[in-house]
Design a protein around this nucleic acid. Structure first.
Lengths: 254, 254
DNA sequence: CAGTGGTCTAGACCACATA
DNA sequence: ATGTGGTCTAGACCACTGA
């Protein structure tokens, strides 16, 4: 086991050296031991410090390059990337989403009931037909203008009493320690039905962005199944995409 | 210059050996010299055939792995991928995206020119007004049905000659070692204009999913700025969302 | 068992950035 | 001129696959 400053690698560990080193470097960056815009120690320096060959040091750096944490400048050094503007592709509810956009979120309740799940809901939430679910339907507003219709279904066991659910579903889930950690969303472009047009105050046939979301606890248990219809003229969805992770190799290039 | 079967590398070329070899292997795959599901010659074999060290052979294979063309099976061999298992929301071009969905991608060129950037393009790509950009416009098809209109702009310096750009822009970028590692996308729901309706074979006012993408190298340099218009009735976009990463002072929920 | 990919080393030379 | 990343080599050992 070798520990130099914040770098520690163990040659006897089953984890490859380059992954151990990558992890150490990741830690130094998130700890602020190396600040954004600053250069890492040079590859030869890291090699000397850790006793790892330069080829392997490069391989560690390559993995962080692919994560966008570092960038190399030939002839100069390897630098901590400027922090990426965090897009709204994070797991946030409507309330938090609107706040980050600088709007004032609000909502008008359409439905708030507890009852047995439909077969589709039971499937999506992986609950038995006997386990009650909470059904929440709202018109969501931003600065008092209707922006979206949102229909959420959540296993009742994960929520406090229906009466205690305020503006934010995620906040209510959090009170019980049931905030989701991960979700899958499906986005689709479509046209407003007459019912939607009325609720959203747009003409029939207006552009609608439909978002379907399933989110999960760390355990993998489904938390919510939500279908939303956003006004296409007032809402856009920003997401970040990345390179798929590699199965074994390396390479950073250019 | 060495030419063995279809593999040819030139040690005196300014192009790194691993990129030359990657290009040769890409050729063998698209030529059908190595069929889908078949194994490539082993790394040691390729090394002996080409006179390139095994480390460098691996580096060539790594670049193709990241493009999803190959997959490695430890103890067994390196195989030409059948279909790519990508849970979408990954940084893939249209070609790879369609293959993942099990459709046959195709395209009809509308425009393919090199020229000076417009002010907006210069801004989006962070290039000077004197640096030429390549403008690529296509109707993208899936199983011969028009699915999207795509207009991409790329700094000319990052691409091989315009003539060498085939179906896949990302593949062409990869040939120069310029595959982006991350991107930002903006999705919006909207209605088809008459020009779009004609190209996509839908009625005017049909649902359109607009996707705007900027993607970047690890260095942070912009690679492409692409605006697409997808048929809303035939395409949905799936993305994964996660919890925001935690800052120093943790907190675990519960 | 022989062959494969996965990892790792200790060198080396190059082009480029910084100064 | 020195230091940096970029490339490349010729070995080596390991864990695993598959006949």
């Amino acid at each position: 086991m070798l520990t130099t400053g914040r770098i520690s690698v163990d040659a006897r560990s089953p984890t490859p050296l380059y992954l151990q080193l990558a992890e150490s470097l990741r830690g130094m960056i998130s700890d602020g031991a190396v600040r954004v815009g600053e250069a890492l120690p040079s590859e030869r320096e890291l090699s000397a410090l850790t006793g790892i060959s330069r080829v392997t040091v490069r391989k560690a750096i390559d993995t962080l390059l692919r994560e966008g944490l570092l960038s190399r400048r030939p002839g100069s050094g390897t630098y901590v990337s400027t922090r990426i503007e965090q897009p709204a592709s994070l797991l946030a509810g409507f309330t938090a989403d609107m706040r980050t956009r600088g709007s004032r979120p609000g909502s008008v309740w359409i439905e708030k009931v507890v009852g047995p799940p439909t077969p589709e809901e039971a499937m999506m939430l992986a609950v038995g037909p006997g386990a009650p679910v909470v059904r929440l339907a709202r018109v969501r507003t931003a600065d008092d203008e209707p922006l979206a219709i949102e229909r959420a279904v959540v296993p009742a066991a994960l929520l406090p009493g229906v009466e205690e659910i305020g503006e934010s579903l995620y906040e209510a889930l959090g009170r019980r320690g049931n905030r989701p950690v991960r979700g899958l969303q499906r986005l689709q472009s479509s046209l407003a039905t007459s019912a939607e047009a009325q609720l959203l105050n747009v003409p029939v046939g207006a552009a609608i962005l439909r978002i379907e979301r399933r989110s999960f606890l760390a355990s993998g248990a489904p938390v919510e199944f939500t279908r939303s219809a956003y006004r296409g003229d007032r809402y856009d969805f920003v997401t970040e995409v990345r390179e798929p992770p590699m199965r074994g190799g390396e390479e950073g290039g250019r």
